[in-house]
Structure formats: C-alpha cells, structure tokens
C-alpha cells in the first residue's frame, strides 16, 4: 500500500492535506512515544500549528495511553461505538464501517480483534476514498458517495463527541494539537460536503432493517 504516490492528489480538498490526514491516522494508531512524536511533528507541519519547543515525549505517551489506550477506563475511547447511549464496542456503528471497508475491498487486519471503528481505521479508509475520487474513472462517483456517507453520516455522529471528551481532559499539547487538527479537518470536510451536496438524501426506509 505504501507505494502510492500522493502527488496526483489535490491537497486543497482536505484541510491539512492528504499528508495531514495521514499523520492524524498515524497519531491515533501510535504505539509509543516515537510514533506519537513522528505523527505530531507531521501534523504540526501539515496543519501549520506550532508544537511547544520542549516536549517530554514519554509524558505525552503516558497521557496518550491514559486517554486512548488504557489500561484504566478511557476518558476518550477512540471508537465510534463507545459514543453511543449504551457504549459497547462492536456495535452496529462498528459493523457499518466494516461494511464500508468491505465495499472498498478492505478489512481490518485480524478482523474481529481491534474494533473496525477505531478512528485510525476510519481515517485510513477516508484516505483511500479520497484517492479513488481523485483518480477519477468509474469508481469515483461511488467513492465520492462513500466519503460523503463516512463523513456526514458516520464520523459526524461521534468524532465531535470524541473531540469534546479529549478537550475536557487536561491533555498534553501534542494531543491537543492532534485533536484541534482533527476538528479543523472534520469542519472543513463537512463544509465542503455541504457546499457540494445538491440534495439531502432522505431517511427513507428507516424501518426496513427492524426485526
């Protein structure tokens, strides 16, 4: 997957650019201080926001784990399904993005272990959809529709609550930078889609899945 050239893409379509989105994905998927640092520096660059001069990245790692990883109860779990009224992972929210990935021909590695609606997977799928859209061709309209659905119908349902959950905590500067960048990206993406949307798809057939 890493051999894809990003030069063909149109960065203006995404706040922070394709690379910004990629660094956001990597940030939330980071496993240690080095990963957090690399992603944070990328976010800082792409979104044009300054990191503090001196950062104790080990402390950032502790903070990152406290918020997003564990082992204690998470103030800001990075999964869509954790933001439902009754937070349980692997909920219909999880399965709807799994379905989306399937339609893209993708799946999470070791599907069934890490929930499919982890924010990094969703951002990764979005990167894929943007690439397909920009590549043009027969898949572009479907990719466009999927992107719209992912942003407006899925991510908009939970990412703002996730952002709020983090900002209510006394989070470290790099975490806040990532969260603010995520917020900027989501806002810009929603604005863009609102502009391009010609008609709002109705909530037709709401009950066809019930029992």
């Amino acid at each position: 997957m890493s051999n894809v050239s990003y030069s063909d893409m149109k960065p203006h379509q995404i706040s922070g650019g394709i690379r910004g989105l990629q660094f956001l994905r990597d940030f939330f998927a980071a496993q240690d201080a080095d990963g957090i640092r690399a992603a944070s520096e990328g976010i800082s660059r792409e979104f044009g926001s300054q990191l503090p001069d001196v950062v104790d990245w080990l402390e950032v790692e502790y903070d990152f784990n406290r918020l997003f990883v564990g082992p204690a109860a998470l103030p800001a779990p990075p999964y869509a399904s954790a933001y439902e009224d009754d937070p349980t992972l692997m909920s219909p929210r999880t399965l709807e993005v799994r379905n989306l990935y399937r339609r893209m021909g993708l799946a999470t590695p070791d599907q069934g272990s890490i929930p499919d609606d982890h924010i990094s997977f969703e951002l990764d799928a979005l990167l894929g959809l943007v690439a397909l859209e920009n590549a043009g061709g027969p898949n572009a309209p479907d990719a466009s529709a999927m992107r719209e659905w992912l942003v407006l119908n899925h991510m908009s349902q939970w990412v703002p609550r996730f952002i709020t959950a983090v900002t209510e905590e006394d989070a470290s500067a790099p975490v806040l930078l990532a969260i603010r960048s995520l917020e900027r990206w989501l806002d810009a993406e929603r604005d863009r889609l609102a502009d391009t949307q010609t008609e709002q798809s109705g909530e037709e057939d709401v009950h066809d899945q019930k029992r």
Binding site: Q22, Y101, R103, M104, G105, G128, N139, M146
Partner: peptide, 16 residues
C-alpha cells in the same frame, strides 16, 4: 456500491 478491484491501488496503510 462496491468498488471492485479498487483495493490494490488505495493508499491505505492500516487496512488490508
């Protein structure tokens, strides 16, 4: 909608 055959060309780093 299914993006048949699209996966191979996607810039996705996490999803397989």
């Amino acid at each position: 909608t299914a993006l048949a055959g699209a996966a191979a060309m996607l810039p996705c780093g996490l999803l397989v």
